[in-house]
Nucleic acid binder design. Structure first.
Lengths: 213, 213
DNA sequence: CAATAATTTGACCGTTTGGTAAACATTACA
DNA sequence: TGTAATGTTTACCAAACGGTCAAATTATTG
């Protein structure tokens, strides 16, 4: 048989592992910068260092590539929120959640932009993920926050919007990086802006939740 | 002469005004949802209710359309920040800035997404605007905030990151609307989420800046 | 109303794009 | 080592795309 596509085989060969990894790495580069429609298979193939048909041997369509990429990244993307611990104390939990999210914006900006692009155009590929697993996870953590508020450990506030605001403020430094750099100017060009942001955001959220440091 | 392009003429006819308006309105729809590369001229023409060559009679290229659109929108987009008044008192100024930005996210989500798309892909068209006029405006307002902090009217904080955090938290409700809806579920489907968001954000920023309400 | 300028359209063009077919090369394994 | 499965490449296709052109239509004005 001439066409046993990689995706159809039962066991994955060493080559499959390597090449798929290579492709997804390249795809992350291209998709995150140009969005789904803006990215071309040729571009991804070039970055991955292989021919277009070879690439399509591993992923049958552009959409299949995008889907595989997003699903893989989504999983690790939510790790910080999953680490949010009901048993811990509010201050350190919220503090470290902000810090982790900010570190992800600094260290994995492509992943952040990939999501931003996807959500911006209506999240056609991950709608179910958002309404299902994501909502469930957020519901769970929102309950934790609400309990903290009820116990008087933090100020009463809407836990959902608290989570949204942590997401947005931290991811801003990845998604709007160009704008942030432009406004801050060249003097603050290294990763110093992340430290400043961390300091500010801690102050903002600790104060906003009436937690004195 | 057969081709006196609209853009080249000295005076604008009534028809030119109307059609260019029509086109930019349609372009806003399409560009904001699909990004620059993802949008097609045919799509815009269809939404605008005219033929593709007719559209290209008013804007010679897709990029010209995009540029015209972005420049026009950018101007009104910064109005809330411009309204930021050094003479006013910190509490009401920051409060109303947040409120205005949130209203814009609610009432002009397409404009917000247009920018998000543009900045996400590196802002090739507005790089100069960002580094010039925008930076200048932000610098100016940052100085106002810094003065407030120095006078003890608000807590000491990095004014740039304060502005970034207001931008990100408010625009989040336009740019990530799909995600917000998915997480909040259907029960909170009307514009109620904006009121909740406004309440939360006021609490967050007033507390974060040590302003008691 | 005539004539000139402005606007609109259908047909078309070259390029880019996502994807395929089939021949060729390599690897894994009996 | 031979052979079947896996992997790679060259050449190609149809559709979509940005944009052009000349002809037809409509609006403006002397």
């Amino acid at each position: 048989m001439p066409i046993p596509r990689a995706a159809q085989t039962q066991r994955r060969t060493r080559i499959q592992e390597e090449k798929e990894e290579q492709i997804l790495e390249a795809a992350l580069d291209v998709f995150s910068q140009n969005g789904f429609k803006g990215a071309t298979i040729d571009q991804i193939a070039e970055v991955a260092g292989m021919s277009k048909p070879n690439l399509l041997y591993y992923f049958r369509t552009k959409e299949a590539m995008h889907r595989a990429l997003i699903e893989r990244v989504l999983d690790t993307w939510l790790d910080p929120l999953r680490a949010f611990d009901a048993e811990g104390n509010p201050e350190s939990e919220i503090r470290s959640y902000i810090r982790r999210k900010l570190e992800m914006a600094r260290d994995y900006p492509r992943e952040s932009r990939l999501f931003a692009n996807e959500v911006l155009r209506g999240a056609p590929l991950i709608e179910d993920e958002l309404k299902g697993p994501l909502k469930q996870l957020v519901d769970e953590k929102a309950e934790v926050i609400r309990a903290w508020a009820k116990a008087g450990k933090i100020a009463k506030c809407d836990p959902y919007h608290l989570i949204f605001s942590i997401w947005s403020t931290t991811q801003h430094y990845a998604d709007f990086d160009v704008q942030v750099r432009a406004v801050l100017g060249q003097e603050k060009d290294g990763d110093g802006r992340f430290e400043d942001a961390a300091r500010f955001l801690e102050q903002l959220f600790m104060g906003g939740l009436s937690i004195r440091a």
